[in-house]
Amino acid sequence: MRIGIDFDNTIACYDGVFHAAALERGLIPPDLARDKNSVRDHLNGSGRKDDFTELQGYIYGARMDLVSPFPGFAEFIGVAKRAGHDLFIVSHKTRHPILGPKHDMHAAARAFLVDRGLIGEGAAKIDPAKVFFELTKEEKVARAADLRVNMFIDDLPEILAMPGFPEGMHKILFDPDNQFAGHAGCGKELDRRSSWVAISADMAREQS
């Protein structure tokens, strides 16, 4: 099976990262809730929407050292590859931030994958040649189609609902916070999973 995997919020976990980076830059009070939405709402609500936009570029370009892979993802790579599956990372993001210094966010994401031991040579790593960062979501879907993936794993139902994916592709909605538990389409077009451990367990069952 050929499996496509999104990057941001699917492989890369930003829990607490926006809070830490915003504190570092003096943008928020220390007692603000640690989730990304609280940081965004605080800045937007105080008329500093551009500060949040620049903060995103700062994190994605300069502070990926604050970010960790979701628990179980590294183990998933080993499980999938031992089962003979072919893995591809297919994501979309602009190359440079909209505001602030022109960090290369594609290069930063690749460096994150290398530094965390997720891509490279070896039986438990993804081939770097199979990592694709596209500029738009349409180009992301087109890349998945070109790669003829049989399964795609993404944290956004609207991405998985886009036309252009290979026909009959298995769609897995990665939902670690269970925010889409009541989402229309889950259980029909989308298989919703809350962890990489659960996805690995599904894969192991299919092999047994």
Rank of each mutant, 00 (worst) to 15 (best):
D127G: 05
A129Q: 13
V90A: 00
G122E: 12
F174R: 04
F132N: 03
D104C: 02
K171Y: 06
D146H: 02
F88G: 01
D41V: 03
P29D: 14
H85R: 10
F152A: 01
L147P: 01
G61A: 07
C13W: 04
I89D: 00
K188P: 00
L99S: 07
F7L: 15
Q207Y: 06
E189M: 11
R143W: 02
F174H: 02
L156Q: 11
Q56W: 00
M64I: 10
A83P: 04
M1P: 08
E138F: 00
P176Q: 10
I59A: 02
L27A: 13
L118E: 09
E75Y: 06
P128I: 07
I11M: 07
D127Q: 11
D175F: 09
F73E: 05
D65I: 10
E139C: 00
Y58W: 15
D51C: 04
E158I: 03
E158D: 14
G84D: 09
F165Y: 12
T94Q: 15
V149F: 02
A22R: 11
A12K: 05
H42K: 02
D65R: 02
H85Q: 09
P176V: 11
A62D: 08
Y60E: 09
A108M: 06
K137P: 00
K102V: 10
V17T: 11
R205V: 09
D6A: 11
A198V: 13
F18V: 04
S91I: 05
R25A: 15
R34N: 08
A123M: 07
L27T: 09
S195L: 10
G72N: 04
D65Y: 02
L27M: 15
D35N: 14
D202G: 15
H92T: 02
E138K: 02
E75Q: 14
G57F: 03
H170V: 09
F165M: 04
A181M: 06
K130M: 05
I11H: 11
